[in-house]
Write a protein that binds this DNA or RNA. Structure first.
Lengths: 239, 239
DNA sequence: GCCAGGCATTAACATTTGTTAGAAGACGCT
DNA sequence: AGCGTCTTCTAACAAATGTTAATGCCTGGC
């Protein structure tokens, strides 16, 4: 059941069978969320962390004027709120952007892992560190890239992350985001989001229809995005 | 010597004397960096993590067109590259924005801490999680706040963080950043950065001269920024 | 005290991005 | 098939932000 988690953690360093067993042992019940449902509410103090088995979810904050900003996208194999294990209080919400199948890991059992399984603890820590690295890359994209480059970068990142957990299909992947939602990822108005998608299409590096993105020219896309996957730490080495 | 680190980690949960001793034991040599010097180079694979004892530093990335974006500001008591302990390869650089006094913690000794001191490990992990929370707040600011609000938010955040490590002076703090550097924090041109600072001054919530920021109206500043310090996890509770 | 260079500030203009509004298309429901 | 609703896409205009350039200020070196 935890295949996607093994793929995710395992891309950084080898996972032993004992460690896999500990992860399985940390899981409690499963649940399905419908598109648009909140998986974790802002301000809550969860006693479990949520692992996505399938689907797409996002962290977000809402401002007083109603503006919404997504701060991360989470795919299969991602813990959406592993940080809440130590941060305790959620300062943001997490919403399902597609039907999501998730499983909950008890904080008390995660704590036991930190007491007894140092290597696995480091891998879980690392998982949150990669989260941070992705955040930094997003900050760079928001601050200093053109919007076209930003979108191209997002496509590169999602493609690579989805590939790791075997959710790509050739050079295509499913991206169940409306343009309004995408605008809340990039930090744009819907109208301009539409212009930017149009620009990428016009250049001919991606086709984008029916919530399916197909990369037509990976090399050129990567060039536009200045995409360097180093920040995703995809090399397998002792950690 | 590690007072600022104790203040930083200790704001989240109590630190025992044994834990303080472990931290002291992890430290190797100290060093001073001049303003503008790189503390950690992008692409390097450090075998130690760097703790700031005094000074201001920043993580940054540089794009092909020469554009620079800071992804975080680091103050006394912050580990600037604790994440490199597990990420291994630096995907960004770290530069001193003022004269910096730092001390290096050996990765092998940090690793020993993860093997033997679970609670301290969780506190170090937490430190990197707060880093991530700050990143998310920056993403929200870049994507959905007005530039004035973004700057106000930054001032609020820095004031609170500096207060924790006792680097404020009443309602003032030292901010040794040129407007060009500040522009690389917010993601603006220098000219517009100047306009935005002018706007905050005009509203009368801060005075800003000689690299010293004085908050004249905290309540109003917080309101403009929609600043809610929850994300900094400043409550002391079992972790 | 004088000079050079960096920094802050302003102006004028160009470009990007947002807003409002509406038309056309897609999609589920009955 | 028909309907309503959400989504995509466009247009026209408004506002925010970037660019280039010039000015004056301040500070450190001589």
């Amino acid at each position: 059941m935890l295949e996607s988690l093994y793929l995710n953690l395992g891309q950084h360093d080898a996972l032993s069978d004992a460690e896999k067993a500990l992860l399985v042992g940390a899981m409690t019940f499963e649940r399905h969320f419908a598109t648009g449902q909140d998986i974790v509410a802002s301000g809550s103090r969860p006693t479990y962390s949520t692992l996505i088995l399938d689907g797409l979810a996002a962290r977000y904050k809402v401002l007083e004027d109603g503006g919404r900003q997504f701060t991360s996208l989470q795919v299969a194999g991602d813990f959406v709120d592993l940080h809440a294990f130590l941060l305790k209080t959620m300062d943001h919400g997490i919403v399902a952007l597609s039907p999501c199948h998730v499983v909950f890991a008890d904080h008390s059992r995660l704590r036991a892992i930190t007491e007894e399984a140092p290597h696995l603890t480091r891998l879980l820590w690392l998982d949150t560190l990669v989260d941070g690295a992705i955040h930094r890359e997003w900050i760079v994209a928001m601050g200093r890239r053109s919007k076209t480059s930003h979108l191209a970068h997002l496509v590169c990142e999602l493609f690579v992350r989805l590939q790791v957990v075997q959710r790509t299909n050739g050079m295509s992947f499913h991206l169940p985001l409306s343009q309004a939602e995408l605008a809340d990822v990039i930090g744009l108005s819907v109208v301009h989001m539409n212009r930017v998608i149009g620009a990428l299409r016009k250049i001919g590096v991606v086709s984008w229809a029916n919530h399916t993105v197909t990369i037509l020219d990976w090399h050129k896309l990567q060039e536009i995005a200045e995409f360097d996957p180093t920040y995703l730490s995809m090399t397998r080495e002792p950690r």
